[in-house]
Design a protein around this nucleic acid. Structure first.
Lengths: 350, 350
DNA sequence: TGCTAGCACTCGGAAGGCAAGAGTGCTAAC
DNA sequence: GTTAGCACTCTTGCCTTCCGAGTGCTAGCA
């Protein structure tokens, strides 16, 4: 990695900070006056060309100030940025909101999206925690009308899945109870693959057709859940991004919206980082055709490590308040993890 | 209502159609040439001033063509527009997609949002059907760890609600089963108010503390559900709106996004119409400060009329393909209603 | 060797002027 | 009631000009 002198670091840090704050290219005079380095603007200029040569800065056009490149932002984030933790009052306010809301993962995620968007002034993204591998816990069959009903499947990780059932012929609630009791006994604690084997195997006994149908549906649901496809992603704060000057030209805004609206695109982004190690930052993209080449993404995993990984993150312009965003993401991820731990922690680790 | 001559109607219809297609103000020459009225452009101009005087058309500036006003669109939609049903192949394609997806209301709504956005080239909105008044059906308590668990509440309309429970002290699964059996017996078929009375009344017996806690939580959930607040709204196709030329100026785009991101704003919009009578269209707004004053909204209810009303709709620029959008909304609402009827219909009407 | 003052140079953006084009509104005649 | 004709208005694109910001370079200084 390129080594920069202290002064170069100071200058780079100032340029990045100033550009983030104002969205205007910053020139040598400005730096000279507000940076307190005790050197003239000419000297600054020399340093600027050095930084530009090394790819940390660029110029929109010949006679404009300098603007950070993606590489410049990366250096800033990794070495120069100072942490800015959320204030205590912000922290308590956030926790308070989470405790106020009803005890339901969906609600928490929605709230997390709202809070994160507000704190970071970017577009927040929250994906549900999902186990890569889970086990059967409980099934409940509830009759709705003569030939229709609801199957409610609870998995080991506490996730609840509902499916509507349309039976070929009338089915009574007693029959359903019989079937569910039997399935609860037979499938207790089975993993997805085992459940599949059992569902495809010989069932026999009373109500066989029904047992087979329900068990196959259960297995389908388990597979779909484990495959991670189709989990819901909560979003908020798109409006903050659209408010940034770099999205005045609508085409950029459209690109971002295109990504943000498409779950599969987001999952692809999530896949780019390993979330084991805390907050990760993706800055821009080398791929010029990439829809988020002008954006940065701050991500963190949350949940029960290794067991059920969810994702919280913020998408914003590259010109983003990194310090604050990172803190916000880290804090919200922490709160969500805590909440989940309170509920599942003992069981999982025990 | 103002009466228009046949020729004025023809002209208005043509102007609206042309403007929707091209987004350009349309002038008398264009009308004269492509409209086949057999009169000269001067005559057309005379009619145009008449239409403008009555408020159906306006001019962006003195020497531009005419553009429809909100009033013009309304007249168009109510009297001039010809229905354009979806083609049979489109219809079967849509139905097919709904049958492919897993039998789960959430999935259906997501799909509906996708399909509707695609067909209408606008931003789709889907709100879950929700009963104004519902009854207890079934409760299930599932232990997760020693002192935590899951409460799953099923209501009469088939909606499933989950809540996480943190108990004050360790609780066994047998205890939970005892409690849920008891609650299922005591609360069977109770409405929200009755359930509340029972939950607040004397319980007595074994496990009293637990019974009270769970029953109160159940009542909370029932109230929250009936109040309609906080139901989830599915969206898709924002990108289509942003693609329209009238949203080149980012400020308008921002306004729309602001509305679309805020659930409460959408519920307010939904509240503006009575959905009993099929597809409803809101065109623009008289309120100049309104965030959607440049937009139109095509809405329809779906579900089991009077029992559980959901909403499907499309938000688009005022310059919207009304014929197609109305058909798409009607069709998707129909499909959703059918699906729900298949499941709940017999029970509700029986 | 590093820093600085000075200066010519470049480029974008704003302002102004001009011509072309589109579309109107009016009038007089059919 | 309809139409041809025409003057008028207003936008749009284009070109030019001008200004200022900021650079890059060079020569001189410590």
């Amino acid at each position: 990695m390129d080594e920069l002198t202290q002064r170069q670091q100071d200058i780079l840090g100032y340029v990045v900070g100033e550009y983030i704050a104002t969205a205007k290219a910053v020139g040598s005079d400005t730096i000279c006056q507000s940076c307190g380095l005790g050197v003239s603007s000419a000297t600054i200029r020399n340093e600027l060309v050095a930084l530009a040569d090394q790819g940390f800065l660029s110029q929109p056009h010949t006679s404009a100030g300098r603007v950070p490149t993606a590489k410049g932002y990366r250096y800033f984030v990794e070495r120069l940025m100072q942490r800015s933790e959320l204030s205590l009052s912000e922290q308590t306010m956030i926790r308070h909101q989470f405790h106020q809301v009803s005890q339901d993962l969906d609600q928490w995620m929605r709230l997390a999206a709202t809070v994160l968007a507000k704190m970071s002034q970017g577009a927040s993204l929250i994906a549900a925690p999902q186990s890569h591998q889970t086990h059967f816990r409980h099934v409940e069959l509830i009759s709705i009308s003569e030939a229709t009903g609801l199957m409610i499947l609870v998995l080991q990780d506490g996730s609840v899945h509902q499916q509507m059932m349309v039976y070929g012929n009338p089915v009574s609630q007693e029959q359903l109870s019989r079937v569910s009791n039997r399935l609860n006994a037979q499938f207790a604690n089975l993993g997805t693959a085992q459940a599949r084997a059992k569902a495809l195997g010989e069932m026999g006994g009373e109500d066989e057709a029904l047992v087979i149908e329900v068990s196959r549906r259960m297995v389908d649901v388990m597979y779909a859940y484990e495959s991670q496809s189709n989990r819901e992603i909560y979003r908020d704060g798109l409006v903050h991004i659209l408010g940034q000057p770099e999205f005045e030209e609508i085409e950029r805004a459209r690109q971002v919206v295109r990504v943000l609206e498409q779950d599969s695109a987001l999952e692809a982004l999530f896949g780019r980082v390993q979330l084991a190690n805390g907050v990760q930052i993706i800055i821009g993209s080398d791929d010029q055709t990439d829809d988020i080449r002008d954006c940065s993404l701050v991500l963190s995993g949350y949940g029960l490590p290794g067991e059920a990984d969810g994702i919280v993150g913020v998408l914003g312009p590259m010109r983003m308040q990194y310090g604050r965003t990172v803190s916000a993401v880290r804090y919200v991820a922490g709160v969500m993890s805590d909440l989940l731990h309170r509920l599942y922690g003992e069981q999982m680790t025990g």
